[in-house]
Design a protein around this nucleic acid. Structure first.
Length: 417
DNA sequence: TCTGGGGTCCTAGGACCC
DNA sequence: TCTGGGGTCCTAGGACCC
């Protein structure tokens, strides 16, 4: 059996932990630059504020209903996540951290009543961290997702824990769930399914495998089998990321190459630091820039460049050089840039990798980077930086930022990068 | 005035090989 | 009337997730 544990309205719940006066009140958390709504308390959901809603369109409604508004505080949320995950890891040796607020546990070999086991986890996390969670338990991962949805939808009846452990419960659950609400069925697939009169989960499981494979690829077929109760989606316990990205929408539009370049350099520095943290080297680097996509008065321009590196590296100095080269090639004059990003891909382990006959990463950089990371970690991530980085003079719009209650103050600054 | 950020996996088609 | 067959690797783009 697998459990899927999910924190309820995670970001909003994090804010509530440190400000209990928000309990029973509508709370929303906004994306960077206070742009979109990215988390809502149940009360806010009831007011009809949709996920991803542009904040400026809902200002009047926020005002009218006295909605508590927060800027995104990732230093806080990621630290709270770490704590929740750490507690949950006590309930199984096999934990897949699926996202900042969700994890799967493999419950094989747990002899206790699983409903009680789930309730125990819930109480434990709430008592120690103050975050409410919901738990779905079932014979496969996708069914655990369905069970979790039921636990959330009927909190009183289920105590926020629902177990699918019989064939009749599985059928009942699949008759209940709409096909578009199934994990792995997005808008596109839902449309295809509606077109052939498939609306409920159970109808999806009755489709021929050939149809599913043809129209929804192997991913869809694995999902279908998984929902039938045949485990077809494996646990993924790997801790290393396969790509690392830093992308930002700017607080204003940049017209000069130097401004755009400085931001790209800083993004590369952040990516490189994360890359070193997981002891990987990367073989490719992608840079993209784009103009304001919602502006009708100017034509939208977006371009990207993927650079295949001559050698694998995690040196900030080397990666920055390639990133500058890339941004130079895609930057066009007389445009106003609103967003840019850097993505590192194609990783190898720093412990064993193929060296090149002719070119290799400068061996001196390894120690330099180690020293830099150590200093920046201890004294704040801006202490040692490249001259070509931005000077931190730009300011992200964060009018409603809470404190980094559980971490150092300088990590707030890191978020603003 | 104002619309986020960070991931994973799969596939078709091109380029190349013998 | 008519021009082979069998592969691999890479990449861009699509679809999905939170």
């Amino acid at each position: 059996m697998y459990a899927l544990i999910d924190c309820n309205n995670f970001f909003a719940s994090c804010e509530r932990v440190f400000n209990p006066s928000l309990n029973n009140k509508p709370v929303v958390v906004l994306s960077n630059n206070d742009g979109c709504v990215i988390a809502r308390s149940n009360e806010a959901k009831k007011l009809g504020i949709p996920m991803g809603a542009p904040a400026f369109q809902f200002e009047a409604l926020f005002e009218r209903h006295d909605v508590a508004i927060y800027s995104t505080n990732f230093a806080l949320y990621s630290d709270m996540s770490r704590r929740v995950m750490s507690i949950l890891s006590n309930y199984s040796p096999l934990q897949e951290i699926y996202s900042i607020d969700e994890c799967f546990l493999d419950l094989s070999g747990i002899l206790e009543d699983l409903q009680k086991y789930g309730i125990k986890m819930r109480k434990h996390v709430f008592k120690w961290i103050g975050i409410p969670i919901s738990i779905g338990i079932a014979p496969t991962k996708s069914l655990a997702k369905v069970a979790n949805r039921i636990a959330k939808k009927f909190p009183e009846k289920t105590n926020n824990v629902y177990v699918i452990d019989t064939e009749s419960k599985r059928e009942k659950a699949l008759k209940w769930i709409d096909v578009e609400d199934i994990w792995g069925v997005g808008r596109r697939n839902a449309k295809k399914l509606y077109a052939i009169n498939v609306f409920k989960g159970v109808e999806f499981t009755e489709l021929s495998e050939a149809w599913v494979l043809k129209n929804m690829t192997i991913t869809g077929l694995n999902l279908q089998r998984d929902l039938k109760g045949i485990p077809s989606i494996e646990m993924d316990m790997s801790e290393k990321k396969k790509s690392i990205a830093t992308t930002r929408t700017f607080e204003k539009e940049y017209r000069s190459f130097d401004e755009v370049k400085e931001r790209v350099v800083t993004f590369t520095m952040l990516c490189a630091e994360k890359l070193r943290m997981q002891h990987s080297l990367c073989n490719s680097l992608m840079v993209f820039i784009e103009t304001a996509r919602f502006k009708e008065s100017e034509e939208f321009y977006s371009n990207s460049m993927l650079i295949k590196l001559p050698f694998p590296t995690s040196s900030s100095l080397e990666l920055v050089k390639f990133a500058e080269e890339a941004v130079q090639k895609i930057y066009k004059n007389h445009k106003s840039y609103k967003r840019a990003g850097v993505v590192l891909v194609d990783f190898v382990s720093e412990k064993s990798y193929q060296t090149s006959l002719f070119f290799n990463s400068n061996p001196k950089h390894k120690k330099l980077m180690e020293a830099m990371d150590r200093v920046n970690h201890k004294y704040g991530s801006n202490l040692i930086r490249l001259a070509s980085q931005d000077k931190g003079t730009y300011k992200m719009k964060q009018q409603h930022l809470s404190r980094a209650y559980t971490t150092k103050i300088d990590e707030i600054l890191e978020v603003s990068l």
